[in-house]
């Protein structure tokens, strides 16, 4: 088990290296002159040269990469091209917002999909299962931002039930925090819950056909015991993969949902940086989100070894 973890970890290092190269090379892809973008068209040649010097554009590419990655390893993403503030501290400041949103969304999608997938899978073919399956297909196709708009209309515009904008820190008031998170997190999490429901349903159906389930039933085990003792762990392998896959989807979703609900999180920060072509910010968000995904995949990989001993053997 320890060996497996170590091997997975060492496998992640070259991957992270290539991710960093791709992220860095975003700078090289910019058509036009970044210095000109910052200084504006009317800037003098000296100003432009000074900006280029500051951006390190006169150095060879490899030098620039190593300078950049050297700072990044110490979590220093440089400063924003426009506001001159440290990108790292700006992200750090916004992290609680995005984290709250993603975590609450994930919890909501689990709360929906676990019972829904299990019930649909155990009762496959019934009306209830059909309805859930149709609902899940719909859930995948509904854009999160449209759902967000609809929820805002129902809960905030036409009625005064829940706040549709802003963020309250959990330290300040847990109740207000939760109220402010509810609409955006539900909008963000619904598609995930639909995917997870479908996944869980089909793995429950497959697992229920396995010989060991038949054996367990044949020896007289009660239905509930079969489900909890034999079914869940085995059916959870594909479901865990699916769960891991929700992380990049949720991170992607925060980019849109934060703007819609006026949450000042990392996604919102990234979008405004894109509008300004503020590349250090974009690079930081891209790199960090990829690192989160790599770490999630590692965790999923390692969880297989726990859930399915077969994968431990090499």
């Amino acid at each position: 088990m320890v060996k497996l973890v170590l091997r997975r970890l060492s496998g992640a290092i070259p991957l992270l290296f290539i991710i960093s190269i791709i992220t860095f090379s975003l700078v090289l892809m910019i058509p036009g002159d970044p210095a000109l973008t910052i200084a504006g068209d009317s800037a003098s040649e000296q100003t432009l040269a000074a900006i280029r010097e500051r951006l390190g554009e006169n150095d060879p590419i490899l030098t620039r990469y190593f300078a950049w990655i050297g700072d990044v390893l110490w979590l220093d993403f440089g400063s924003s091209l426009f506001s001159e503030t440290s990108v790292t501290s700006a992200i750090w400041q916004r992290l609680p917002v995005t984290l709250s949103l993603a975590v609450v969304a994930l919890v909501i999608s689990l709360l929906i999909s676990l019972p829904a997938g299990l019930i649909a899978g155990l009762n496959s073919g019934t009306i209830f299962d059909r309805l859930l399956t149709i609902g899940a297909s719909m859930g995948v196709a509904i854009p999160s931002f449209w759902l967000g708009l609809l929820l805002s209309v129902v809960f905030a515009v036409n009625n005064d039930w829940l706040p549709a904008i802003g963020y309250v820190s959990i330290a300040e008031s847990p109740v207000e925090w939760f109220k402010h998170m509810l609409l955006p997190a539900f909008s963000l999490g619904l598609a995930s819950s639909a995917t997870l429901t479908r996944q869980l349903r089909s793995s429950v159906i497959t697992t229920m056909q396995q010989d060991y389930i038949r054996t367990a039933r044949a020896k007289g085990l009660r239905g509930r015991k079969v489900v909890f003792k034999h079914l869940l762990k085995n059916a959870s392998v594909p479901a865990v993969t699916s769960l891991g896959l929700q992380i990049p989807i949720l991170l992607s979703g925060t980019v849109i949902i934060e703007g819609l609900f006026s949450l000042n999180g990392i996604g919102n920060y990234a979008v405004s940086a894109v509008l300004l072509q503020d590349l250090p910010v974009v690079q930081a968000v891209v790199l960090l989100s990829a690192v989160v995904v790599v770490v999630t995949n590692l965790a999923v990989d390692i969880s297989y070894a726990y859930l399915n001993p077969k994968t431990r053997l090499q």
Partner: peptide, 25 residues
């Protein structure tokens, strides 16, 4: 495969907005 794995590690929409940041809207 390494490059493809790396590309798969970026959350889709975040990679998309990064490309747009570079190429223009």
């Amino acid at each position: 495969m390494r490059v493809s794995d790396a590309l798969l590690s970026f959350p889709p929409l975040i990679l998309a907005i990064a490309v747009i940041a570079v190429l223009g809207r």
